[in-house]
């Protein structure tokens, strides 16, 4: 009797839990899927039901000058800031990766800390600071700011992967007579390449999507795509934003699939 009742409770609570999770997944996906749906709307404004499908908003995005300019600025900025972050972040990650000394732990915490700061605070403080230095709202300022938020991602993924690789390879290389630089370029860097790649990917995506910082630094000649999209959204509510968001999402998914295919995301998930 007791067992029968237990099984009943099990079945009911199991079904309730499953139902809850299904609702949760709908909650997660709904705001994204409706945007994709609206992107194909033939209406001149956002409304339901969508009467017929059309590609007009994709055409509009491709011919709207400010979007294209924003896209160019965003792409240049994301590439440049990721490269700069990798250039300074990778050596730092190699220096702290295997050290358990207190200085290394402190340095790791410091290099990771920008990721935990409210971006609006960083953007505000940095803008005034750079204005004093004579930079103000410009591409150079954007580059500096985006590099600051990119460094933690590089440091985290590279230290993670470097720690997971046994030092034997580098020791063998040294014993076999390779100099420090040869070991670095022929042994260490190829081994940590997936970590560098993943870190660059995160830094790139974070830079590309950043709004709070770019919003402060945007100037007439250097406004990033999110800033242009935001000002477009504030003045009109038509499906153009849906179309460009959909394109952006598809691109991000393709990049992620490529990474998964060539490097495997599991290998880079090691926490720093």
């Amino acid at each position: 009797m007791r067992h029968g009742a237990d099984r009943m409770v099990d079945a009911v609570s199991g079904a309730a839990l499953l139902g809850f999770v299904v609702v949760f997944v709908v909650f997660l996906l709904a705001p994204i899927l409706v945007v994709v749906a609206v992107a194909f709307s033939s209406l001149g404004y956002v409304a339901f039901p969508i009467p017929s499908l059309s590609l007009r908003w994709f055409v509009r995005v491709l011919t709207y000058e400010p979007f294209l300019d924003g896209l160019r600025v965003s792409a240049e900025l994301a590439f440049a800031s990721t490269a700069l972050a990798a250039l300074i972040g990778v050596p730092a990650a190699l220096a702290i990766g295997r050290s358990s000394r207190p200085w290394a732990q402190g340095m790791a915490a410091f290099l990771l800390s920008p990721v935990s700061m409210p971006l609006i605070v960083l953007g505000y403080s940095l803008l005034f600071y750079l204005s004093v230095l004579g930079l103000g709202a410009s591409f150079a300022s954007l580059l500096i700011a985006h590099t600051v938020i990119g460094v933690p991602y590089l440091v985290r993924t590279v230290t993670g992967i470097y720690r997971s690789i046994p030092p034997d390879y580098e020791e063998a290389s040294a014993i076999l007579g390779a100099g420090r630089l040869a070991s670095l370029f022929l042994v260490t860097l190829p081994l940590i390449r997936p970590g560098i790649f993943a870190g660059c990917l995160f830094a790139f995506l974070i830079s590309f999507d950043n709004l709070p910082i770019s919003y402060f630094f945007g100037s007439a000649d250097a406004s990033t795509l999110p800033v242009v999209m935001l000002s477009y959204m504030q003045s009109q509510f038509d499906p153009a934003i849906a179309a460009i968001s959909t394109v952006q999402m598809v691109l991000a998914m393709i990049v992620l699939l490529v990474v998964e295919r060539f490097y495997g995301l599991r290998r880079i998930g090691a926490p720093a």
């Binding site: 709904a30 705001p31 994204i32 409706v34 945007v35 609206v38 956002v46 995506l205 590309f208 999507d209 709004l211 999110p226 999209m229 935001l230 959204m233 509510f237 934003i241 849906a242 968001s245 959909t246 952006q248 999402m249 991000a252 998914m253 992620l256």
Partner: peptide, 14 residues
């Protein structure tokens, strides 16, 4: 993977 603008916009569409 989607931009913060897309998700915010999605809530407005909903």
């Amino acid at each position: 993977l989607t931009s913060i603008i897309m998700r915010t916009y999605g809530w407005r569409v909903l």
